[in-house]
Amino acid sequence: MSEASEFDLNLLPVVLAIAEERSVSRAAERLGWSQPKVSIALNKLRAALDDPLFIRSSHGMAPTPRALALMAPTREILDRIRNEVLAGAAFDPATTTRRFTFALSDIGEMTFLPKLLAYLQTHAPSATVRSVTLPPGDIAAGLEAGEIDLAVGYFPDLKARNFFQQRLFTHSFISLLNAKHPIRGKRISMEDFLRIGHAVISAEGRSQEVFEQLLAKHRIERRIVLSTPHFMSIPFIIASTDLLVTVPYAVGESFAKIANIRLIEPPLEIPQFDLKQHWHRKFHKDGANVWIRSVLVKLFAG
């Protein structure tokens, strides 16, 4: 008998087909093979296992004890492939207990998680969500390893050919002031912008870079009074001081609802930027990944 490492496992379905059909010709029809191909495969099996495997009888091809011993493990292997591998693309959100992991900044959490969690509670009630904030290099590795399902937001570094991306919506920036601040109007003047004290957020998220790079391009230097890596303290700081801060528009709208602050347009036109969802090409056809991507498109694309 040949070494086990040299045995061709692709021949095992032939044993099962002949044993159940009791005929080489019917086994060939079932497998979608030609009859000569099945006969050749059977001869290879007989040589490899040093056993005739099937003997002609009045009831067709009768399996030998060796063939009978192969049937149960072969059937189990084929069933597992059909049920766990080939049927893996079928994903049922109503019954899944899957944990979806998203790479999000804190402003990404504010923008995406409330609507997403509300949707999952209705359509995938047993699913859970994990949010992570990581450096760009770690996000790429996490997506490739399957530790992160989607990176959602502004991630300009995820441009390699192994990553897919899909635009969800376009974002802009807005400035915030104390609602009682003496500066009025819909847009702050450049003179006031340069005179007033600023709060600046230097968070892990990349979206703030768009605004900072624009200021650097125009050589605009603000009077920075506060620099912080945190967004969540900003609405309360702005509501109780005369400082101004510039943030992504959706964040500004959220802050205006929870603190005594108002929106005001910055003194210069700021390029808009796209918020996207990113995933690794290995999971492009994964059922769960396909579904959660479709949910984000449904909730946020515009």
Rank of each mutant, 00 (worst) to 15 (best):
A256N: 03
H181Y: 08
S172Y: 02
A203C: 07
P248H: 08
F193Y: 13
V210D: 00
L275T: 03
H198Q: 13
R262Q: 09
K276G: 04
Q165D: 13
A256I: 00
E191K: 14
K282M: 09
I234A: 07
I270K: 02
H181M: 08
R206E: 12
S202H: 14
V210M: 07
F193W: 11
F173A: 01
E221N: 13
I196M: 14
R262G: 03
L268D: 05
I234N: 01
A239H: 01
K159I: 11
V245Q: 02
I174F: 04
H278Y: 15
I220S: 09
T170E: 12
R184C: 12
R184Y: 10
T170L: 10
E269S: 11
H218N: 14
Q165V: 04
H230W: 08
V251Q: 00
I261Y: 01
F193C: 03
A151L: 05
F211N: 01
H181K: 06
T246Y: 03
H280L: 06
A203D: 13
S189E: 11
L214S: 05
V200Y: 07
R222W: 07
R281M: 07
F283M: 06
N260M: 10
D192I: 04
L168E: 00
E265G: 02
R281D: 10
D274T: 03
A179H: 11
I264D: 04
F163E: 07
V210R: 02
R167F: 07
S233A: 13
K257D: 09
T241Q: 05
G153N: 02
K282C: 05
L194Y: 11
I224G: 10
R167S: 15
S202Q: 15
L176H: 06
L263M: 15
H230P: 00
F164N: 11
A160H: 09
T170Q: 12
R281S: 11
A199Q: 11
F211M: 06
P271I: 08
L244P: 00
K276E: 08
R161P: 04
I220E: 08
R219S: 11
Q277G: 03
L226Q: 09
F155T: 04
F273E: 05
I238V: 13
Q208M: 14
K282H: 13
A203V: 00
I174S: 03
S189W: 12
Q208S: 13
N162H: 12
D274G: 00
A216T: 14
M190F: 09
K257V: 08
Q277M: 13
H230E: 15
R167K: 15
Q213G: 06
F283E: 04
Q213W: 11
G185D: 12
V210F: 05
V210L: 07
V251C: 02
S227Q: 14
E212V: 09
N162G: 15
M232L: 15
K180M: 10
I201S: 04
F231S: 02
P248M: 08
I201E: 06
E209A: 13
A151N: 01
G252E: 00
Y249F: 14
H278T: 09
S189K: 12
A179I: 10
F164I: 06
F273K: 01
L158T: 05
Q213T: 09
I237L: 13
K276T: 03
F193N: 03
P267M: 10
D192C: 07
R187M: 14
V225P: 02
Y154P: 01
R167L: 13
H280K: 02
H278N: 12
S227W: 05
I258Y: 02
I264W: 04
T241Y: 02
P235Q: 08
K282G: 05
R262L: 04
